[in-house]
Design a protein around this nucleic acid. Structure first.
Length: 1013
RNA sequence: GCCAGAGUGGUGAAAUUGGCAAACACAAUCGACUCAAAAUCGAUCGCCGAAAGGCUUGCGGGUUCAAGUCCCGCCUCUGGCACCA
């Protein structure tokens, strides 16, 4: 009742939002224009896939962000391109269509309409006249055109290699479409299937795709991308340099010189570690390696491979394994020896066995590796399992201790008596030192047997309650006193639990120069400091181990491995060569890599993990590949004037599963004349993957209706590159690699003018359901934006989503919290009552004069707050820190509410700052102020540091690091004055009584710190 | 296993270069208004303590007048990669 009645209507978003949406559309204020007088700003969202489920509140988060940026940039005077479109080809649409028995084209059309409705009510500033849709023939005509250009340049080729095949989706997949051995779409384990397919040579661009991530433009990095995405791409491309080395083959002791083909004479391997060449103890071929079948079928070798059956059955077995089983690194290694065949190590002529094992991948490197178990984890596991020899050729760089090549393999053992809580060590007399029971393995012994023998011989311990192996084999050095030199050891560590009272002191071999002593864990650690460390790292390991064990911190080898003087076995780092001949012994492994490669006639090469892009799908709903197979001419391009090759209507678009697409069944469409010779030809019936259209769609927005080119060069030059690209992080190694590849290709053929498409990339953090799980129909936690808009209004939803938290962070939706955004908007709405509405007829000049006279303290306070906000909001939007921009606006409103009246000018400033976030309410209030044109085409406020400056500041006063008081001071005040004032404060005096002030530190505008004795 | 990133109240979070930790919100509690409720407005709101005061940014150390921020060690979580020789 006493409630003040507003001069204006109650805030009702349901009424004002549609009104402004209509107005914006009819006045076309958001139409993008190439305006040579203005700087341009191209801001893009990753376009959505119009699924049947519609949008949930998480989807628009990124769109709101780009809308905010676009609106601010427009007000700052930029010509904006902020378009939207739909990525509608692909498996989900087709699977959805199959399920609902509707044609994918119809389902897609319906879904797009639904999406557009949902987007519309959120009030985005898209220029819908530039909408693109990848399934529109006018669009995919150019997708096909790009493919043809690639084909003409030899970048698209037909291949028959086995590829990833999803048995559920019934189509081949690219490497990028496989996640953990499963189809990225449906989760079905992927199989390997030989299939005719079209492949794009993305590997030709591997180096540029990698190098340009770090390229500089005028001393500034060209790309402003999240480090995590850059890293993902680098990992995916996976560059490594190494050597191609040839191992000659011998069958039953005879070199196969009589073999027909040249390559059968040797096995070529790729290795990044040619420095370990002397440590090769066998060679492994992938089961799919060509040489395997050739050796099995070759007339010469046929009968000489003595275990032919066994080999064949192993190969059959590996074929039935799924990719998941096959590539599981945890799984135990399997393999079979190719008996009768030997490979000759080119560096020393040593003959080593040839094995076939599925841990070697057929499609990386040469599909064959030289195995060095001492210096490779996988080879080590394999050698252990099959009892193959292990030869150490690299030792760690333990400083000056590298002057020896002698390597011992043995055990170290400490006995523990729980009754007295003590451990054994050996006390030597001359020179005095302490060591630990240890010894090398004798022939035929295993580590444990060595440990048992040594502890009996050296410590006289026969009866042991229990044995504990401490971790695994480790690599260290030790001092051999009798030989006066350091040695290296690979050793296993043991703990023997005993009863010391039962031990007869001299029940051991006679050793005059040492005694067995029992020490506590602390004592042993102390001895290590005094003596043991001088004796080398091997003993240090045990001293540490004993101590850690006692502290119960030792559970795994990893605790020991953390000491940098201890290395695990296999030793896979670089180091110093041993057992590698006079030329290489003692040299650094990194330094001799190329030298050793050349010395055996090898080649230094670069390899990438990136594979060529399997580009054909055996499905209906995709762009037809514009090629014709002619009986006479082979593969022929569809003439460009015949593009687009439209996807024909078909009764059954069910995938066939035969490796042919459903298009193959439409003979009318398939059978065509060859454009070259006029003879019989058949269309290519595979279609393109979903990634095709999205690899270049961003260019089409620049010139969406062009019939002669995919984009007009002038328009392309004006708008490219994209200044800000916002989307999900899940595209790091798919869309964002594919589109960079296509862009670079288009650059090469002169279709675009930039080497990279996306300058600044930002990813959106997902909005999770209120239960913390991903929003999904399955969990019943989906929140629909339509409902939120109905209850709170689009502006409130926009403000809430931007305020939730850091933009790139994953955050759960909270229905309870949206009310805060709505309240905030309502408060802004009510500010209208405070505005002094000087009539609009008052001339601008007079108004300014008036404004000058009325510079009251209140006005100044309001201006100060506003100008601080201008700076913060502007910077925050530029840096995509929307949450703090909104909180600044909230603070501003809270402050302004305290002021009884508000000038129109000041309220306008506030509305401008608010406009990007809450565009409808901003425009409504803006027009209430009497403005005829939209706030969105007004100019962004300019920050004035003078206006924002405070006349006084309150700073904290610390005494000995603790805040004890605050002090309000003017800006002009001198440092000495501050010091005096501060010490006079009662709250400070209290803490200074009886103490002497030693130092006062004054950090202007921040803090005063008093230090006493 | 490897490589990133993160860890701050009941919750989402904030904190330019090392400079008053918890801004801004949500929730909660109390009060005003109301027949009542909602809405709105006002107050309280890290922990311990009656207070003085003490403690507090995952844990343990260190540097500094001053550490969420820098250094060393550890724990936990999230994401990416993972038999790529």
């Amino acid at each position: 009742m006493k409630k003040p009645v507003s001069k204006f209507a109650v805030y009702n978003p349901a009424k004002i939002e549609p009104k402004w949406q209509k107005k914006w559309a009819s006045t076309k204020i958001f139409a993008s224009k190439e305006d040579s007088k203005k700087p341009k700003f191209y801001v893009l969202d990753m376009f959505p896939y119009p699924s049947g489920e519609g949008l949930h509140v998480g989807h628009p988060k990124g769109y709101i962000a780009t809308d905010v940026v676009a609106r601010m940039k427009r007000m700052k005077g930029y010509s904006i391109l902020h378009p939207m479109g739909f990525d509608a080809f692909g498996l989900p649409a087709e699977n959805y269509a199959l399920k609902t028995k509707t044609h994918p084209a119809i389902a897609t059309k319906k879904n797009v309409e639904r999406f557009k409705e949902q987007l519309h009510i959120l009030g985005f500033d898209y220029d819908w006249s530039r909408e693109v849709n990848t399934t529109d023939p006018n669009f995919y005509r150019w997708t096909q055109w790009i493919f043809l250009q690639m084909w003409k340049k030899g970048l698209a080729y037909e291949s028959f290699e086995p590829i990833n095949w999803c048995p559920s989706c019934k189509t081949g997949l690219a490497n990028e479409d496989v996640e953990d051995g499963r189809c990225e779409r449906c989760g079905t384990p992927v199989e390997k299937k030989p299939l005719r397919q079209w492949v794009l040579k993305i590997t030709d661009y591997a180096e540029r795709l990698l190098a340009d991530l770090d390229i500089f433009d005028n001393d500034k990095p060209l790309l402003d991308w999240p480090a995590s995405i850059v890293k993902s791409q680098k990992d995916w491309i996976g560059k490594s340099e190494g050597a191609l080395l040839k191992f000659e083959l011998k069958i039953d002791g005879v070199k196969i010189s009589g073999a027909k083909s040249d390559h059968i004479k040797n096995i070529e391997v790729f290795t990044t570690r040619p420095d370990t060449l002397f440590g090769v103890t066998y060679v492994v071929l992938a089961p799919e390696h060509k040489l395997v079948s050739e050796l099995l079928n070759n007339a010469v070798s046929n009968n000489l491979i003595t275990n032919r059956k066994e080999v064949e059955s192993y190969i059959t077995r590996t074929k039935t394994e799924t990719e998941i089983e096959r590539t599981d690194a945890q799984k135990e290694k399997t393999g079979v020896e190719l008996k009768g065949v030997k490979a000759v190590n080119p560096v020393n002529g040593e003959e080593v066995p040839v094995w076939i094992a599925d841990y070697v991948l057929a499609d990386y490197g040469t599909g064959a590796v030289m195995a060095v178990p001492a210096h490779d984890e996988r080879d080590w596991q394999f050698a252990k399992k099959f009892g193959l020899p292990i030869k150490h050729v690299i030792v760690p760089n333990f400083g000056e201790r590298n002057n020896t090549a002698e390597l011992v393999d043995g055990s170290v053992v400490v006995a523990f008596d729980p009754a007295i809580q003590k451990y054994t060590c050996l006390h030597w007399k001359n020179p005095e030192r302490y060591t630990i029971v240890s010894g090398g393995r004798e022939k035929g012994e295993n580590y444990e047997e060595t440990a048992k023998r040594e502890i009996l011989e050296e410590a006289g311990i026969k009866e042991v309650k229990s044995w504990h192996q401490l971790g695994e084999t480790l690599f260290a050095s030790y001092w051999n006193e009798s030989k006066k030199k350091y040695k290296f050891a690979t050793s296993m560590q043991y703990l023997a639990v005993v009863d010391s009272s039962k031990i007869v002191a001299h029940n051991r071999e006679e050793h005059e120069n040492f005694d067995v002593e029992w020490k506590s864990a602390e004592e042993i650690l102390g001895l290590f400091d005094k003596y043991i460390s001088k004796s080398g790292h091997l003993y240090e390991i045990m001293a540490r181990a004993v101590y850690l064990l006692h502290e119960k911190k030792l559970d795994t080898t990893s605790n020991l491995r953390k000491f940098d003087f201890i290395k695990s076995v296999p030793f896979i780092e670089s180091g110093t060569l041993i057992n590698s001949g006079t030329q290489f012994d003692g040299r650094n492994s990194e330094e001799i890599k190329k030298e050793i490669t050349t010395s055996v006639g090898g080649q230094w090469v670069t390899k990438y993990k990136l594979r060529d892009w399997v580009f054909s799908r055996q499905r209906y709903w995709g762009e037809p590949i514009p090629l014709i197979h002619c009986e006479k001419c082979g593969v022929v391009a569809v003439p460009e004037k015949d593009l687009p090759i439209k996807l024909p209507d078909v009764k059954s678009y069910e995938p066939t599963g035969t490796g042919e697409s459903p298009l193959a069944a439409i003979s009318k469409w398939v059978n065509v004349k060859c454009p070259e010779c006029g003879g019989k030809g058949k269309r290519e019936t595979n279609t393109m993957p979903q990634w095709a259209g999205s690899s270049w769609y961003y260019l089409r927005y620049e010139d969406p209706k062009n019939k002669r080119a995919l984009v007009d060069p002038k328009k392309e030059k004006y708008w490219s590159p994209i200044d800000l690209y916002v989307g999900g992080a899940e595209h790091a190694t798919r869309h964002l690699i594919y589109s960079r590849f296509w862009h670079k290709f288009l650059y090469d053929i002169g279709s675009v003018s930039t080497i990279e498409p996306f300058i600044k990339l930002q990813h959106v953090g997902l909005i999770m359901g209120e239960d913390g799980r991903k929003m999904s129909k399955r969990f019943g936690n989906v929140v629909n934006p339509d409902d939120v808009v109905k209850t709170y209004g689009a502006d409130s939803m926009r403000v809430y989503e931007m305020f939730m938290g850091p933009f790139d962070q994953q955050i759960s939706w909270s229905t309870a919290s949206i009310i805060g955004a709505r309240r905030f908007i309502e408060r802004v709405w009510k500010l209208m009552d405070k505005v002094e509405m000087r009539s609009a007829e008052v001339s601008r000049g007079r108004e300014l004069g008036l404004a000058k006279r009325s510079q009251t303290d209140e006005r100044l306070a309001a201006l100060r707050v506003l100008h601080k906000a201008i700076k913060k909001v502007t910077n925050d939007i530029e840096a995509l820190r929307f949450n703090t921009a909104i909180s600044t606006l909230m603070i501003t409103v809270n402050e302004i509410e305290k002021v009884p009246t508000l000038t129109r000018e000041d309220f306008e400033t506030l509305l401008k700052l608010l406009a990007p976030f809450a565009p409808h309410v901003a425009d409504e209030l803006w027009s209430n102020l009497g403005n005829k044109k939209s706030v969105h085409i007004s100019s962004w406020p300019v920050f004035d540091p003078k206006t924002a400056e405070d006349s006084t500041t309150t700073i904290g006063v610390q005494v000995n690091g603790k805040v004890r008081a605050t002090l309000k001071i003017g800006l002009e005040i001198s440092e000495n004055e501050i010091k005096t004032q501060v010490q006079a404060l009662p709250e400070v005096k209290k803490w200074l009584t009886g103490k002497e002030v030693k130092k006062i530190i004054v950090i202007k505008g921040k803090i005063i710190s008093i230090v006493t004795n």
